[in-house]
């Protein structure tokens, strides 16, 4: 067993009177990729938003590199230096170029010096295969390109854990592939990733562990080979028969 990087223990989350997460526990080791799949409204997005404290939760524990997220005295900045997040809607800053989007957080948040950050930003954009698009504004880029800028923007903070929240769900089918290639490349380099996804084929290829959630609980989890070949729970079977 590799050293655990993310430990979620008995997490509960309530919105007003509706409990959307009812006791979820999972562990992701350093360098591992966990895929969370499940029907809409099963609490997948809320779950990963809890991990970087975008959403507060009432009960349970989340530890990232030993930092307890459910701590009233949590240093959120410290947590967010370790956790990067990519969203379904990209959420790039539309008034800044691709390069500036990538450079902003290291300069403003980490107070690093500009020439150094700029060199890294060029390298990151090259890595996500957006060479030549450095000075384009988000509005001038395709969805797939914007999403890759968003990935580069998160990587610029040098996180230890990357969260992907249905990052291909808003994309045209033909640009999904280019984003998945980038994520796979990251996984192969040993980045620890938690993905909420509807891309079953991709989950099968890159995941170390696949989690199936429904109505706020993890129904079943297994390495992808056995998960997709021999699902045991009837709900998992029903879901997989619909999407595969």
């Amino acid at each position: 067993m590799v050293e655990p990087l993310l430990i979620i223990d008995n997490l509960h989350k309530r919105f007003a009177h509706v409990e959307v997460i009812k006791g979820v526990s999972l562990t992701v080791g350093k360098g591992e990729v966990a895929c969370i799949i499940g029907p809409s409204g099963s609490g997948k997005s809320t779950l990963i938003r809890c991990v970087n404290a975008l959403v507060p939760f009432e009960q349970g524990s989340i530890k990232v590199l030993g930092i307890e997220v459910n701590d009233p005295k949590l240093d959120k900045l410290q947590l967010r230096k370790h956790v990067g997040m990519v969203f379904q809607q990209y959420n790039l800053f539309p008034h800044r170029t691709a390069l500036q989007n990538v450079m902003m957080a290291p300069i403003q948040v980490l107070k690093r010096n500009k020439p150094e950050v700029e060199a890294e930003a060029y390298a990151l954009l090259k890595k996500v295969r957006l060479e030549g698009k450095e000075h384009s504004y988000p509005g001038e880029l395709s969805g797939g390109q914007q999403q890759r800028v968003a990935i580069a923007r998160s990587l610029a903070m040098k996180p230890d854990l990357m969260l992907f929240d249905e990052v291909t769900a808003a994309l045209d089918p033909e640009t999904v592939g280019e984003v998945l290639i980038t994520i796979r490349q990251l996984a192969e380099e040993g980045m620890t990733c938690v993905l909420v996804t509807h891309e079953m084929g991709f989950a099968r290829e890159v995941a170390n562990e696949v989690y199936f959630t429904d109505r706020g609980v993890i129904v079943e989890h297994a390495p992808p080979a056995s998960f997709f070949a021999n699902p045991t729970d009837p709900r998992t079977k029903a879901f997989l028969s619909q999407v595969l």
């Binding site: 975008l54 900045l77 969203f87 959420n91 948040v109 980490l110």
Partner: peptide, 18 residues
């Protein structure tokens, strides 16, 4: 301004002021 702009900048570690 869409809520995603707040979320994205918050998850990058910006303070509310920033």
């Amino acid at each position: 301004i869409p809520k995603g702009q707040w979320e994205a900048s918050e998850s990058l570690g910006f303070t509310r002021h920033q």
